[in-house]
Write a protein that binds this DNA or RNA. Structure first.
Lengths: 206, 206
DNA sequence: GTCTATAGAATGATAGAC
DNA sequence: GTCTATCATTCTATAGAC
């Protein structure tokens, strides 16, 4: 491995470590509540190193948010517009539940951001998310028109899927507390996914 | 009005003004992000007055959280355990949607708190909420046993109702943005409530 | 690239006059 | 009860040695 490659690797590793821990700290304390010191401590680095890689706290936060949005858009692709309602929605809900389990902190940062009026990600909402939502609404409306599902408001159906699946990440602490303080195990995650999928599919007559 | 009464009234009015604006500021910026200065400015009072009524920022926050929890428990009562599934759930969902519309900031403060691991309200989750949840789970399980609704996991059904109804408060900003920047009007709130109610009732075969 | 030390600004809380 | 002034602390960000 040459020195240039070594430098790049070191840089990428530091970036990865910082971003990973920043996501957790931002999720736990919110943007303002998170401190560069706390992120530095969690990352095992002196505070000044964070400012070497990210000029400001806001720039670091932006990176964290963008990573989450990318993961979120992946799930969006699993909503295959060519499939039938049962297939498309089953796959989409399962993927969303998997993300809630694998990336709860990312979901929490996103939720925190939206709750506080999306000061940073407003442009994503107005462009990418808005466009994606429109395409899926058209698909659902077509299903309704073709009689493949009952007459539902497609927009509110999407909100229901988002809300229900993200609840297991954002309200993880409440879910765990009401589960006797224990994290959901594999079987419980399966049960949750199955339950959500069945109620929604049955609820829209798919 | 005697002077004692006048003093009480003045005190109660100040408390009400402070708590009202504190709820909005805490919802918008989170616990740490909210500043006593911002709450004071919103309330039209000097900062020191807040510390006259509430010794610390944390004490003020606690009061805000407790008010929300009280409203939340009111809705809980609308889940009449003696009614049939259709009636009980229709009334509960409608009440929850009304609260999301009337008290979005309260819901946001609660959501923020839970997302961040419920450092302040942990005891509410473990006692009052846990007990309330258990009684409702028993009711839903009885409905299942009596064949009044399909076989569903009652706990996850509750989570679905909470998540979906609170989404309209917590993710208000996203909902509004995807609605072309306009707040939902009466008809849209009705449509949302009707849609949520119908999908869930149909989904559980009620 | 990594670290120590510190500047500069903002914040929670209080003292004390009115 | 209300207000001004201020202290003590904490935090972001940077300077500069290594």
């Amino acid at each position: 491995m040459d020195t240039a490659r070594k430098r790049n690797t070191a840089r990428e590793e530091s970036l990865e470590v910082i971003l990973h821990h920043a996501e957790q700290i931002f999720a736990e304390f919110g943007f303002k509540g998170a401190t560069m010191q706390a992120i530095a401590d969690a990352s095992g680095l002196p505070k000044a190193n964070l400012h070497y890689y990210f000029p400001t706290k806001l720039a670091l936060y932006r990176e964290v948010i963008e990573r989450i949005f990318t993961i979120w858009l992946e799930a969006a692709n699993s909503f295959d517009t060519s499939a039938n309602p049962r297939e498309a929605l089953t796959r989409y809900i399962r993927k969303k539940m998997e993300i809630s389990r694998a990336h709860p902190c990312g979901s929490k940062v996103w939720a925190n951001e939206v709750i506080q009026g999306a000061p940073i990600i407003q442009d994503y909402l107005q462009t990418t998310l808005n466009e994606w939502t429109d395409t899926r609404i058209r698909v659902i409306n077509r299903w309704v028109a073709e009689g493949k599902i009952a007459t539902v408001d497609s927009r509110h159906l999407l909100y229901m899927i988002w809300a229900t699946t993200q609840h297991y990440a954002d309200f993880q602490h409440q879910v765990v507390t009401l589960n006797g303080g224990k994290r959901l195990n594999d079987a419980q995650w399966d049960a949750a996914t199955k339950n959500v999928t069945e109620i929604i599919l049955k609820g829209i007559g798919a």
